[in-house]
Design a binder for these strands. Structure first.
Lengths: 341, 341
DNA sequence: GTCGTCAATGTAAGCGCTTACATTTGCTTT
DNA sequence: AAAGCAAATGTAAGCGCTTACATTGACGAC
């Protein structure tokens, strides 16, 4: 029943005939210890199968080598690739990743953040900027480095503290909407994400609206929908009933676009002949569905990598890392038709 | 620069006019404390914005409220849903999840496991059974509860210690292969996963082979390939060149099947008219690709949920939880043709 | 040979909690 | 009202590390 007592640093010290301080140094700043001693200690470590207790270490050293990440969801692939790269990079620096998912709920996110901070994370990865200002204050007070990924604005709202690694959602969406219009479409609707507590969804809607307005098109239908294929199908069906069928449907992300394509096809519409549908994100399914989606490519890997680097630099007090704006671009595939007018 | 001293338990105790022990009890076993005191303490906690230091707690209490999970990959959707459910369930019990991914590499997995144990995880989620027996000994010695998910055998090889929550990969694969044969196919090949260090991939190959043999079919081509769409495309192309085109291709998972479908179509083959292709897992892309895949449905959500429950029960020393074998079933969609003979 | 210097190592005080054990408090009993 | 007892609370010893500071010793300068 009772656990066999695990070897502790003291045991190693005794066996190697040195003090605990020296063993600790061997493990953490090996260059401060002369080679002969280091070898002796290493031998003792191997012999005992010693493994440090990270909780004790974190407590004493006030750093945990853990990075926390709160992402909206792990279920669809939107954040998967970035998270994978993020964690690989951290792993290289011997940091572990504590992930939590908020299911796009603000209160859940706050709870998760607090819990991660209680765990003593050395840094935090957050998605998007929109959250209770109290959270930023809290983080600032605790001096926890954090990076906001996926969004980029000229200034981080409600805080001058964290860093951003993202892209301009509004501009990116604007570019694809303009592209659609350039292809001759005049009746274009939008299947948007839920904009509450989600600045990216909001920015994409703004990008859409601004271009519609610039081009003098009439007020288009915009429906908000959770990022879920089935819900997107239903939303699209409902939209058609209420507002009719557009020649082009702009979707706030690929998941929504896939839902729309599937539903359109189920209703006997040909994509893109009868209706053009565009996505956003360029996740895997975008190129798998038939027709493959014309969409906005988001540099998932780079987002993950640079977020990690920025965070690491901050943690190590490296010279100031600036916010980073990444570029997106349109990927033309086959879900967008040219309309002859 | 220096962090403002965070309130500690002692500060709360002082403000509330009680001992630290009482505060600790309020936080951990509130029913052992009389209501009046509890309220007073709560007020002090709120007033100071106190948050417990989990590292100190873990050190003192020898439990961390952290569960570790080492999964082969976060990138494709194979484990995403299960992991999401797993973490949601843990979250209900105030456990956090420390995830690591091994990229299907045995040594990386071992390193991750050791790191998680160093962090003092209260339990571990592992995928599949195949790993160095030393790891099982190690876990057993440390008395760390763990569950093996995704595989199910009558007995957990190399250990009588952990629990299994999985399904019979061999049987599941056998059933779909038999189904394909029942549809009239005689020349059926397999695009398999890499079987080294992956008992699930191996079992699926065995399931395939056994049915081929039972039905007296000639020796089929079997090619192993990483779970990656592009690699699958290349593998399929190579297979065709070397072994010709089967009437049906059994794939070890949906990712491989999608790659095969895409490549087949790129080569001018119609699926399923010219070649039938089946998947395994029933992840999202299986129903999105055209034609949607006939595949083996794996209960991802249940795997995650029951893994969590089993682990929690073990951690709480609840009455013995038995290993759990879940059922899979074939989902018929449109990638499998009936061959008239 | 003595002293100063600096690198290597040792000593010991915590880090912020939990919990076994001791003590006090508030009831019920008689 | 005293005794007895359980429930509530307090006391204080760690949990296994890190690190500021103290000590040691080797070596070169004089």
């Amino acid at each position: 029943m009772s656990k066999p007592p695990l070897p502790k640093l003291e045991d190693v010290a005794r066996l190697a005939g040195v003090s605990t301080a020296t063993v600790s140094r061997c493990l953490n700043q090996p260059n401060q210890v002369v080679e002969a001693t280091r070898k002796r200690v290493q031998k003792a470590v191997d012999e005992l199968g010693y493994m440090p207790n990270f909780n004790a270490r974190s407590l004493a050293a006030k750093r945990s080598k853990i990075i926390g990440a709160v992402i909206p969801t792990m279920e669809n692939a939107i954040f998967a690739r970035a998270l994978q790269v993020f964690q690989e990079r951290l792993s290289e620096e011997d940091f572990d990743l504590l992930v939590a998912s908020s299911s796009y709920k603000a209160d859940a996110e706050e709870k998760q953040i607090r819990s991660l901070v209680s765990r003593g994370v050395d840094g935090l990865l957050l998605i998007g900027t929109k959250r209770d200002p109290k959270i930023y204050e809290f983080l600032q007070e605790r001096e926890i480095p954090f990076v906001i990924a996926w969004s980029f604005y000229d200034q981080l709202p409600a805080s001058n503290y964290g860093q951003m690694v993202g892209f301009d959602n509004k501009k990116a969406m604007a570019s694809i909407v303009q592209h659609v219009i350039d292809n001759g479409h005049r009746k274009v609707f939008m299947l948007a994400g839920i904009a509450d507590n989600n600045d990216r969804a909001l920015s994409r809607i703004e990008g859409f609206k601004s271009v519609i307005k610039e081009n003098g098109l009439e007020d288009p239908a915009i429906i908000q929908c959770e990022y879920d294929i089935d819900k997107a199908r239903k939303a699209f069906a409902a939209m058609r009933q209420t507002h009719g069928t557009p020649t082009a449907l702009i979707c706030a992300n690929d998941v929504l676009a896939v839902g729309a394509v599937l539903e359109a096809q189920a209703q006997g519409l040909n994509v893109p002949e009868d209706i053009s549908i565009t996505g956003f994100d360029d996740i895997e399914i975008a190129s798998i569905i038939s027709p493959p989606l014309t969409t906005v490519h988001v540099p998932h890997g780079k987002l993950g990598l640079h977020s990690a680097n920025t965070l690491l630099a901050n943690i190590n007090d490296d010279p100031a890392i600036a916010d980073l704006e990444l570029e997106t671009h349109i990927v033309e595939r086959q879900s967008l038709a040219v309309l002859k007018s």
